[in-house]
């Protein structure tokens, strides 16, 4: 069933292997360096090599109430934006998958627009609209902004899964006596569950560390990325910022990693079924 033809691949030249490895390191090493700097005792500069070693900044960061507030806020925003994206994205994917209607192509285009156009466009557009309607900038305006670009992530994941799922499975379920609701519960949902999970986790990660749109749609609220951003232009708490950045990497790493793993495994089992 599963042909392992990949073993007949040609060997890469050492130059290519080296270049590929170099690029991969270039992508990852900078993030490790942040972690390294969380351990520096130096407060005012980024001196390298580190003049010493300490773990005290983690304790300092944990005792900052403003950070906890930001962290909670970011979690809440991401959770609600993800929930909205899950519903809207799944609905759109189901509609596009199940029927061939006029303007089907434009749906994908419309949904992808918020991430295809520069974030600043989405941000300032929302700002002019919200401002123009005299709606106060608040927690909910942040959520509305985030949902616009999270929808497409769920949509893409779920639609891809729908397309991999054999269309006759739904017919088979109804043929065996299940009505639409039973079919959804017993066949559709279990099949798209991991896609929903993957899409949801990516949407969460995307929302959790979004800064560009948020700067335009937030009022006095300080999400974690906004907090970091304020430190970027006017650094006051360098060591604490390092710790926060590390925490953000950790919080987003797991969902992203598992989402990618799920997608990779889904396409693997698809290969086995053929």
């Amino acid at each position: 069933m599963l042909s392992k033809s990949s073993d007949t691949r040609p060997k890469a030249s050492w130059a290519l292997t080296l270049a590929a490895l170099g690029t991969l390191l270039f992508l990852h090493v900078p993030m490790w360096i942040i972690f390294l700097y969380t351990l520096t005792p130096e407060e005012a500069t980024y001196t390298f090599p580190l003049p010493g070693f300490t773990t005290k900044w983690y304790g300092v960061a944990l005792q900052r109430p403003d950070l906890w507030r930001s962290l909670t806020l970011s979690f809440q925003v991401a959770a609600i934006a993800t929930a909205a994206a899950l519903i809207l994205g799944t609905f759109a994917a189901a509609a596009v998958y199940r029927s061939n209607f006029f303007g089907r192509e434009s749906i994908s285009f419309l949904l992808v627009l918020p991430i295809a156009l520069p974030g600043i466009v989405t941000g300032i557009a929302l700002r002019t609209a919200i401002g123009g309607l005299d709606i106060p900038f608040s927690f909910w305006t942040i959520v509305i902004g985030h949902a616009t670009f999270c929808v497409v992530v769920v949509y893409n994941n779920v639609l891809a899964r729908f397309r991999r799922t054999s269309a006759t499975m739904i017919e088979a379920s109804m043929d065996l006596g299940a009505n639409s609701f039973q079919t959804f519960r017993h066949v559709v949902l279990p099949n798209i569950a991991t896609a929903l999970l993957a899409g949801g986790m990516l949407a969460f990660a995307l929302s959790f560390d979004e800064v560009i749109v948020t700067t335009f749609t937030a009022g006095q609220q300080t999400t974690l990325p906004i907090w970091i951003f304020s430190q970027l232009s006017r650094p006051r708490d360098r060591p604490v910022t390092n710790v926060v950045a590390t925490i953000v990497i950790l919080i987003t790493f797991l969902p992203i990693f598992f989402a990618q793993k799920i997608s990779a495994e889904a396409s693997d089992t698809e290969g086995e079924m053929k």
Partner: peptide
């Protein structure tokens, strides 16, 4: 009435 499908349409999960 029941059907045996061309691609079998077994539920993979």
């Amino acid at each position: 009435v029941n059907t045996v499908f061309q691609d079998y349409a077994l539920f993979p999960h």
